[in-house]
Structure formats: C-alpha cells, structure tokens
Simulated assay, not measured.
Amino acid sequence: MAAPSMAAALAASLPAPSAAPAPAAPTYEAIPASMSKVIDIEAEIPLTAVQVDGLVVTKIIKHSREAYGSTAHGILLGLDLDGTLEVSNSFALPSHASDDDDKSAKGVARYQAAMMRSLKEVQADDSIVGFYQAMTLGSFFNQTLIETQAIHQERLRHGGIVVVHDLSQTARGNAAFRAFRLTKAFFDAFKRNNFSTPSLISHRLTFSTILEEIPIKIRTSPLLSSFIETLTDATVRAPAGANPAAATSSAALPPSFDVLNLGTSSISRNLEHIIEAVDAYKTEEGNLGYLSRQIAREKARADAYVAKRKEENAARVAQGLAPLPEEDVSRLFKIPPEPSRLESMLLLGKIDAYAKSLEQTSGTGLVKMYGVKADSST
C-alpha cells in the first residue's frame, strides 16, 4: 500500500490544473465483417507454438498442489504474435464444490469477470488465450474440457488452447505441461452436435483425433534463472573467527534417494483407474447396444407397416378402388435418433492415457529393479 500513498502525495504536491472544458466523447464506427480479416493480420497467421512464462508455470503447479485431486483449473492470459501464443499470466478459478451446477457456474462467471476488471485496472494482460487444467496419470479426456475448449475455440481469435498439467509426473520430479486444441474435423462435428456412426466415419474421428498437440516451451527471465542457481549452488558459511578460505561449497538440497523408489503405489493406483475406465466403457457400450436394438425394432415396425400399406393399396387398385392415402410414418412410430458416441470415444482416450502412463511407470520401475539386481550381484 506504500506505492498508492506515495503517488497520492506526489499528486497533492503538484499545482492544481487549470479548469478546461471537457472534450467531447469520441465516436467509433463498427468495422464491417468483410474488412475484419483484412485489418486483423495476426488472425491469418497459423498458430505454431505456445510460450509460457516461468511465473505461470509456478502458479499452475502451486494451484494444482493446493487443490484437491485434478479439480484445479484456471484462465490463461497473454497475446498471440507471429504464430506464437505467449502466455504471460494466469489466475485460478474456484472449483465446482456446490451441488447446484447452474448456481456454481454463475458464481465462477462472476468471479472471472471481477478478476478481469481488476487486471484491467492495474494495466495487466487481460486478453484470454485459453485455460489450464490439472490431471492425474496423463488422463484429461472429459466432456467438460471438450465443451470449454469448444467455447474458447469459437470465440477467441486463434481458437485458444488448453494447457494440461500432470500432477503424478510433478510428484516424481517432472513438471509435465502439454498444450492442445480441438482438431478441425472434431470441431465441425461438435458444432453440428452429430457424433453418430456415419458422422464419425465421414470426419474420420477416433479418440486420437479429438485434440491436436501444439509444441510448448517455457520462458524464464535471467533474474529467475540466477535465483534458482543460488538455491542449488549455495555455500556453507564458515564459523565465526575461522579462515574464510575454509568455507566449502556444497549442494543446498540434501541427498535424496526418491529416484530409487520403484513406485509400486502409483502402479496399483494406475491399474485401479484402468479397471474403472474399462468398466465405464463396457457400461457405455451396453447402453449404446440397447439403444441400437431399440432403433432397429422401431425401424422394422415402420418398414412392416409401409409394406403392408403397399399391399393393401395394390389389392384395392386391382379391385378398382382408390388407394388409401399414405401416412407419415415418423408420426406413427417414434424412432429415436442414433445415440452419440462421444462419451465412448472419450472413455477410450482415457483408457489409452492410463495405459501409456502405466507403460512409462512400469518401464522405469523395471530399469531400477535390474539396476539393483546388477549392483547386488557385484
């Protein structure tokens, strides 16, 4: 609070400005839609990379650790320049702790609007370029993430991106960050709200073609790099009265043997998630099979009715009578639409992510076990 008081004191010490007539409010003309692409040249440059400041990385890691599980999510702020999306700031959003989803969503919207007003007042970056989401064991496929990214991709200039942060990798000492956006084929099917089997075939959609990954790089300032170097290369102070040359340098962090941990607990947890995802996929496939059989029965009834009406009309024509009027089959038989297969695709993506995480964890554990075996034999 010292800075505002000093600014107020300086402003009070200056002479009062002379009264002047207030200038007229400027008027602006709306840019025609046909000229918007000509004026906004940056919108025509394709997005090729995402650059995240080190401050944003630390804020995301801190929020993900403090939040429960993988509920941490927030807004990314920055700008896009020459095909690079520069993320310079971020802020966390409150989690959906309430049972009333509508009320909770309105509360999050009000909080986001208040944060944007506060950032604008302090002249900080207030341009939304995407959002971030925490995840565990590499799995982040869910309907909420897809719908949020679709909204950003429709309203933002370059579509925006979603940065996912893996908590399980960070616990093992690897800060894992990946940037994604929806593919053009999936976004087209999502806007049509059509994930039937013919639509998936025409768009060539699978769980691996829902998102496309964008290269991400972390940018740190020289001052931050120097600070990290001072933390890792600290020196031990010599006792009072001792020779200064006797001070020896040593690592600031004590030796750790966590790298030798086989990580059996994470493997068992990963297997539990895989089993849960497989069970959910089997349940979803059972529901889809039931709906498909129901649709087939209704179609068979409608086809049988149409065939019977044709036979009756043929018999009436043979007897010299006028044929019966044709009726709207869709009004007589309620044939349900083909069910969406989006949820089953997302579940397949979740199983694939868990399997890849299990492969990486178990592979590292096998290398450690062989290393211990080789060392014990010698």
Rank of each mutant, 00 (worst) to 15 (best):
A105H: 09
S64R: 03
V87W: 00
P32D: 06
I31T: 14
K59C: 05
A105M: 08
E29C: 10
A67S: 12
L93N: 03
H96Y: 07
D82G: 11
A97F: 07
R110K: 14
I60D: 01
V52L: 08
A114E: 15
T48G: 05
D100Y: 06
A67N: 04
A19R: 13
A30K: 15
Y111T: 15
K62L: 11
Q51D: 04
V56E: 00
L77P: 02
H73G: 01
A22K: 09
A72D: 04
A97Y: 06
A19T: 10
S95G: 14
G54D: 02
S88D: 09
A33F: 11
G54I: 00
A20W: 02
A25L: 14
D53Y: 07
E66W: 10
K103A: 13
L76H: 03
R65Q: 07
P32W: 06
A67D: 14
E44C: 14
I45P: 11
L77E: 00
D53P: 01
H73N: 08
E42M: 07
G107K: 07
D80N: 04
I60V: 05
L93I: 02
G69Y: 05
L93M: 07
R65A: 07
S90A: 11
P23I: 08
S98A: 13
A92S: 06
A20H: 07
V87G: 01
K106H: 10
R110F: 10
T58G: 00
S70A: 13
A92E: 11
V108S: 12
T84A: 07
L85F: 01
A67G: 12
F91Q: 01
E66Q: 08
Y28P: 09
P21M: 03
A30M: 15
L76R: 04
S98Q: 09
L79I: 14
G74V: 06
P21C: 04
I45Q: 12
L47D: 03
G83I: 00
G78E: 04
V50E: 03
D102V: 13
G107M: 06
V57Y: 01
K103Q: 10
A25F: 12
